[in-house]
Design a protein around this nucleic acid. Structure first.
Lengths: 157, 157
DNA sequence: GTCAGTACGTTCCATTAAAGAACTCATGAT
DNA sequence: ATCATGAGTTCTTTAATGGAACGTACTGAC
């Protein structure tokens, strides 16, 4: 299957990944959340090629995740900022961070603390059910297909 | 920069992506959470090439995300199951699903409902602060670097 | 006025990874 | 014997990436 067919699949994970699922995009978005906005700054920090960066930014702007805004008009120059759609990826980035903190840290431990402004604590992010506020885990959840059951040999865990 | 240098970066997002950040891996893991365990079943459902699937599964087993277990010994055959480390990626998959549901759905809406067994509701996953239980958003959080400040031109939002 | 610096890209080519299809290997069923 | 099953491997073609240089449009220093 081609990558570009992903967006048409009836699966939100596939559709999300059709925009942010390649090798560099989530790192670009991580830097966006850290306040990076400019081409050269992304390129220096990430060490990816300018060619690839250029294409990724175009894709993200096209998908409405980033906005390309002129910040000066000598030679007009542009910066990239998260849109509401992009800001809403915070959960994804935070979840990746928490998993990396837990399972991929070296002896020094996690590289950064996430501080919750509202309560002042160093926070551990947690995914909960919006209805009952209890944690959602693989075991405490199940899925229900809304259109058609996919071809399945056995029930999901 | 080469992809394989990512794991050494002092960033949990980068380290996570060094394992799960390529085009297919998160879709494989999505299927794992749906109960898929066997090579041919992954291949049929995802439509990726057997070659790539083979390499991805090896990587995931090598990283401790999946376990390769013999399930019969006529010709010995193996299935792939999530380890605790893999099960802990639930948050990431759930966050991707929620974002796709909200921003990438077509007219029919989200393809599946996530049911929380504990409360019986169709649940909307939410990332909250484990300390105070309030939602974590881009604006309500900030980061603090534990080792060294990276070269930064401006403060993070 | 020319030369270096800044900043956002584009172009070119060699290397690497992915797509697609066929093939292997062990075994059990027909 | 022949076919089917399941987990891969081995090709060859096509697409994406890495690396480095170039383009463009200004600003300020000499």
């Amino acid at each position: 299957m081609r990558w570009n067919d992903l967006a048409r699949q009836p699966c939100s994970v596939a559709r999300s990944l059709s925009v942010i699922g390649d090798r560099w995009t989530l790192l670009i978005l991580r830097d966006c959340f850290l306040g990076v906005t400019r081409f050269d700054h992304f390129q220096t920090r990430l060490g990816l090629t300018r060619h690839v960066l250029s294409r990724r930014l175009k894709t993200l702007v096209g998908a409405g995740v980033l906005a390309r805004l002129a910040y000066q008009s000598g030679p007009t120059r542009f910066e990239y900022r998260l849109t509401p759609k992009g800001l809403d990826l915070h959960d994804v980035v935070v979840s990746l961070t928490r998993w990396g903190d837990r399972w991929m840290a070296d002896r020094r431990g996690r590289p950064l603390d996430l501080i919750h402004r509202d309560c002042g604590h160093r926070t551990t992010p947690m995914v909960v059910c919006a209805e009952c506020q209890e944690p959602l885990t693989a075991r405490s959840t199940k899925v229900r297909f809304r259109f058609a059951e996919p071809p399945f040999p056995q029930a999901a865990g």
